[in-house]
Amino acid sequence: MRVEIENLTIAFPTATGISHAVRGVSLDLGNEKLGIVGESGSGKSLTARSILKLLPRSAQITADKLSFDGIDVLTASESAMRAIRGKRAGLILQDPKYSLNPVMTAGDQIAESWRMHRKGSAREAREATMDLLAQVKINDPARVFGAYPHELSGGMGQRVMIAMMLAPDPELLIADEPTSALDATVQAEILRLMEDLVARRGMSLILISHDLPLVSHFCDRVAVMYAGRIVEQLGAGELAQAHHPYTRGLLDCMPALSQPKSRLPVMTRDPAWLL
């Protein structure tokens, strides 16, 4: 499985003209864990979602190349995309509270996802669901199977989301701020779980986040986005060698426990970064 993006541009028509949200992004993803980091509005989510063609209707998207495992996403029909979405590439969103169906039990939602893509009997689906719940390290799968989303904590809900995405056995997992709504201890658990599952199943992962240290800790490679462009790409553990002033600024302006700062450096945004 390989994702190739060349010169991707995403624009939206607005009352005052065309607004470019993503401007000439190129990425090549093999079997690895790629992090995309940036602030609100940097275009990180749009870039990742373009792979699944899950963009707002008004989006104008152009690219020299946008392909998922050789399939040209730009010209692919809706039914061809449906064969990719969920089945070959799963999407995990930020807040399980909003992305799970509130009137369906967790188990039924996972089983539905499994049956949709695997075409098995209800009993097989149930067994597979129990197995998936155990794989995402839920101690009491039978209880969680019958629980509604509001009866689950944030961390549990996110595990259910992950189990649902794993059901069709995808080759690529796109996680859009998967732990931003979670506490630090739960966040660490969910990331460890994802790391473990990705390694065990040989999946590729795109992790989108605003948290640069977190992502570089976890991914093989990090792309830093600013105003619709990738300004810098870094390998794991190369954070200290980041040289783009924006990346440095992001790192410097965070308060740190280990190094006290009497005053936080404030980022001065150079208009040249936009060019």
Partner: peptide, 30 residues
Amino acid sequence: VSVQAEVLNLLADLQERRGLTYVLVSHNLA
């Protein structure tokens, strides 16, 4: 985070200037 830095600096300045007393609740230890 870049905006967070600005707001934290602002809060520190205001405290110094006005002698305010703060109780700050956060999940972020840093």
